[in-house]
Design a protein around this nucleic acid. Sequence first.
RNA 1: GUGGGCGUAGCUCAGUUGGUUAGAGCGCCUGGUUGUGGUCCAGGAGGUCGGGGGUUCGAAUCCCCUCGUUCACCCCA
Length: 421
Amino acid sequence: MAEPTFRAPKGTRDILPPESGRRRAALHAFSEQAELAGFGEIMSPMFEDLGVFKRLGESTDVVTKEMFDFFDKGDPPQHLALRPELTASVCRGFAEHRPTPPWKVWYEGPQFRYEQPQAGRYRQFHQLGVETLGTDDPQADVDVIALGWNFFASLGLRQVTLLLNSLGDPTCRPEYLEALRGHLTDNASSLSSQSKVTLERNPLRVLDSKRNEDAEIIAAAPLMVDYLTDESRDHFDAVRAGLEQLGIAYELSPRLVRGLDYYTRTTFEFAADALATAQNAVGGGGRYDGLVEDLGGPATPGIGFALGLDRILLACDAEAVFPIPEPVTKVFVVDVTGGSHALDVCNTLRAAGIGADRSYGGRSMKAQMKVADRSGAPFAAIIGEDEVAGGEVTLRDLRGDTGQHRVALDNLVATISRLLG
RNA sequence: GUGGGCGUAGCUCAGUUGGUUAGAGCGCCUGGUUGUGGUCCAGGAGGUCGGGGGUUCGAAUCCCCUCGUUCACCCCA
């Protein structure tokens, strides 16, 4: 294959029609549900001061080695980074604008991480998310989780598992970390070399390891849930009760830790069981009760999630649900008199809200009919010398067996509206 | 960052032990008598066989390097 001069950068891709229409439909479904649940959209910058993301944690790979960072042309230059996620931006925005809590926002957009691409993993990927800041009511957690759950269901996905855990709070976590570190250190000689390194940085992360040699030690490790303070325990129980009240099935996953260090208490992940790849997490989130304060704002609790649109659509493919939407073109105008009548007719139909398209370049009727067929439009409006003379078009049913008949130009919009029901 | 698979027309792929102008299907274009698609038929366009170097009389086919892609580790959505 002759190499094109340029191609989309590694880990990025062009989303072409009609697949792009499917993504837009998914985005629309999400925004609609978020708005119904009282969330308003936040549109934040694609890049931020690097410091905003550094607050995500010094031991997270997202921060330490996956950042697309650069310096601007200022004097002195500012160290900026393309956003690797949006929770930090939302919290920065909260700290900056001080909206009245509770502040409920949703977002969608591309995020960037400098990683090796693989199945379901891209350097530019699209996330949908919500954040509720300013309340630590466990029912806010439930509302957030339910929104994600219902969104998956609305797409038709059935094989999604909600994994739930609590990562404790600043009071009980240190005690647990000490116990965990003790256990892992005692068994360090059997741990994989990578996990030994991870143990130094952040023992919690060792629980994430998929390496066989670590499995036994991880299975025997102490669990956070056994160390929760009464307060965190009560919160966790209330979240579980709320989910049960709404009939949302969840699976307790006591070793679920998340890749960002800011999480506290409620932590969850949506796993797409239909995906056979290593990346089957289609969404994840939790509480981050200290993040706003870290970013210079008032102490503010928060809960939210981010869903990966790219993976969600892969999961839809795997479950054969949420197909590409029907084409918008309802009438394909075939004009064999040169094309200027198609110009008028298309313009009229479009003004009336009826999707209309045509071909260009004065092609033969046969060629134009072929394009009409391919367009998916249910009707072709044919214009030849006869029709022009009579102020009419020939309306042909391309999908059914109604045949074709002449329609006066003045009645075209009404006729098609009636036929489309 | 580490390791494996793969790179032949727009797409999916054939290319026999290295041997003449590199093939198929789909898609695309043009026709099949004067204005009609989805079926059928006939033509046609389109490839420096990812790139570079080497071995050879001769390489898509063998060797080396490189780039791209893909999967996995890591990490995460």
